[in-house]
């Protein structure tokens, strides 16, 4: 937006939200009316888009929850669901203990973050502070490409490349396990962490860098003592959004974690995550059955987790924009 436009909007507080171009002196009344109509149209379209996004989010939650509700309020033992590891949804005497699935999800996500956070933040710092010109552009493009790889391709990489690699390296019978899934998830979250983390670092004014350097601080000292503290909230948000991505991911973990219901006690154990369970079992259940509904309960749980993570990230980002 040019300076003239900004001032134009400021000098004309009555001008409606939207294009920011208020009616100017010297326009014929007909053109002014046309202009107003156009602005109104644009404003309406934008408003509809905004409102529909909200409707979609609540709509999705509503439909998921609606399928879950009859069981949730009618006979499901929530305590058993959250603490028992016995997941036998198909037996004659079905038991719905999702603890192993929750543990599997947490294990894969945690390990993924242990890998992704240092890698992602390190890359963000490198791209933002220690690379220039060509190198930086190429890095950014590569990282964005990484974000564009479909998750089924990641799953494929897990099966075909990581699996034999892990078997060789760790001398285990199967390479489809927590470690495999975590590495894939890490690689999938890194682009998010890098791009949001880089934005956060870029948002730190250059005057800080220059002032600190003028006092004899080295580039590392500037990064460590000034930039990281100043960009703290944005970096935290980057990490949280990376977590959100990892918790909700389905295809790659379905293919790479071994698909066995199991509370892991080592990164080399096979597990099954909540997402993988829903994806693989939902198609085989009869609509309206208990099994069907318990999967929706798990879906609601997942939705709640990712929603909370994203909400936290959002509030944190808001905090860092305001300051």
């Amino acid at each position: 937006m040019s300076r003239e436009e900004v001032e134009g909007a400021g000098a004309n507080p009555g001008a409606e939200l939207g294009t920011g171009l208020g009616p100017r002196l010297g326009r014929s009344p007909a053109r002014q009316r046309l202009h107003r109509a156009k602005e109104l149209l644009i404003e309406t379209v934008i408003r509809v888009c905004g409102v529909s996004a909200v409707i979609f989010v609540f709509g999705i939650f509503y439909f998921v929850f609606r399928e879950a509700a009859p069981l949730l309020f009618g006979g499901l033992d929530l305590g058993e669901l959250l603490t028992s590891g016995e997941w036998y949804p198909d037996s004659d005497n079905p038991r719905y203990g999702a603890f192993a699935l929750i543990a599997g999800t947490l294990a894969v996500t945690l390990l993924a973050m242990l890998i992704a956070v240092p890698l992602g933040l390190g890359a963000a710092i490198f791209v933002s502070e220690f690379s220039r010109g060509r190198t930086r552009e190429i890095l950014k493009i590569v990282i964005e490409l990484l974000a564009a790889i479909p998750s089924v391709v990641w799953g494929f990489i897990g099966l075909v490349i990581m699996n034999p690699l892990i078997i060789d390296l760790f001398d285990t019978p199967v390479g489809l396990n927590v470690l495999n899934g975590a590495i894939l998830l890490a690689l999938m979250s890194v682009p998010i962490i890098v791009s949001i983390g880089e934005d956060a670092l870029k948002a730190v004014p250059d005057t800080y860098r220059e002032a600190a350097e003028a006092m004899g601080a080295t580039r590392w000292q500037v990064t460590w003592r000034v930039l990281l503290p100043a960009a703290r909230n944005g970096l935290l948000a980057a990490v949280l959004l990376g977590v959100g991505r990892a918790v909700g991911e389905t295809m790659a973990v379905l293919m790479a974690t071994g698909h066995s219901v199991n509370v892991p006690d080592s990164p080399l154990d096979s597990v099954r995550t909540i997402t993988a369970t829903i994806a693989s079992e939902l198609g085989e259940t009869a609509q309206g059955s208990d099994h069907y509904r318990v999967l929706f309960v798990l879906g609601s749980l997942l939705f709640l987790i990712t929603f909370l993570v994203n909400l936290t990230a959002d509030l944190v980002i808001r905090g860092f924009k305001r300051r």
Binding site: P205, T207, Y208, A211, A212, V226, P229, A230
Partner: peptide
């Protein structure tokens, strides 16, 4: 070095 506009480091 003292800049035209004061740059208080965020500390």
């Amino acid at each position: 070095m003292v800049a035209p506009l004061p740059v208080g480091l965020p500390m």
